[in-house]
Design a protein around this nucleic acid. Structure first.
Lengths: 191, 191
DNA sequence: ACAGTTGTGGACAGATCAGTCCCTTACTCG
DNA sequence: CGAGTAAGGGACTGATCTGTCCACAACTGT
């Protein structure tokens, strides 16, 4: 009933995600959103309620997309170590290609640490990543891919932490040798 | 000549640093600064020129203070590993005590990656930290504190990266067991 | 066709933004 | 004491901020 929407909600959220990702929450104005999404103010507010709510949607989408991406990648992997190396080096290349972008989850955690909803979303996704890593490492351990005396969950927590640092360094010092070297040493923790 | 300043510039920069640290650049208004510094707008602009320039001063002060703090700590240390562990666990405790604060350098790198001056300042300080760590590790290596086949500069780059991750996780998942465990595994890279 | 419903989009509102102006105040030097 | 100089501070400016309103358009069910 009523007039049908003339824009696609998912596409709009994707575009909002890009804007918030690149500029942050505070630096993205509703005018930026109106332009970037190609929707009038009234429609934007009717569809999403507020800038905060649209941000929450965009962040959730980013988290889901990237967490599931990593989880599937680890599930598909025959060996954990090469898969993990490829994933981390992929992040390095992404940061080198566009150093101003980084990771929306890291940006959200740092810019909006005073906003419980944002922190909860990020924390939840980090937990998922940690669990996926722990699961993959446990399977690898059983297969004898690395030392049996290592604790998969502890390694996963370490790696999750390291990845955040990698994304920050990708913005601050986008240097391939530096970042790839850091990745190799981090992977050394599996030995 | 002329009327003497009635406020202390250093104190004012310190207070601005606290505000930018806690709230970020965008979320800190000039009105916040006027209130927080206890100075009228006119005086603030006469003394500092603009919000951007005051931010640059505050960030530089943070970088100098924290970089020199770490460097002195490493220089004073008789053994690198315990000093490093103490430093990292100190950061963990700081994050647990006030998870909304984090590290101004990390916040700056993520919020203001599109502003070259900010990126340059952060990158420069990260370089100093890396060099201090590399120097301390090299001295430790000579003293036989850890394996001679490890490259101090590579380890320093890894540790510098890891620390940024630690500060992000301190905001996103302020959990002592998680963070201390990540620290211990990171220190394992020295073995 | 008409009533009911919901999206559209531009005008609008009130608050807040960064930054400027300028009169006043407090000092120094001659 | 008077001229010169620089800081203090509050009023002000124009732009921009987020969010609302409302006349209109486009659809559905009867």
């Amino acid at each position: 009933m009523g007039r049908p929407r003339t824009f696609d909600i998912d596409t709009a959220v994707d575009r909002a995600m890009e804007l918030f990702w690149r500029q942050g929450f505070e630096a993205t104005s509703t005018e930026d959103l109106v332009e970037g999404l190609g929707i009038a103010r009234g429609s934007l507010y009717k569809a999403f309620g507020s800038k905060e709510q649209l941000y929450a949607l965009a962040l959730r989408r980013y988290c889901q997309r990237h967490a599931t991406g990593l989880i599937e990648m680890l599930d598909r992997a025959e060996q954990v170590r090469p898969a993990l190396r490829a994933a981390l080096l992929g992040l390095v290349e992404a940061d080198l290609a566009d150093p101003e972008l980084g990771c929306l989850m890291v940006n959200a955690a740092t810019e909006r640490s005073a906003h419980p909803e944002t922190v909860r979303q990020v924390s939840h996704t980090m937990g998922q990543v940690e669990s996926a890593l722990a699961g993959a490492l446990e399977r690898a351990r059983v297969r004898g891919e690395f030392a049996a005396d290592k604790n998969p969950r502890e390694l996963a927590q370490f790696l999750t932490t390291f990845v955040q640092g990698l994304r920050v360094m990708g913005k601050a010092r986008a240097d391939r040798a530096f970042l790839t070297n850091a990745v190799e040493i981090a992977l050394g923790a599996l030995d």
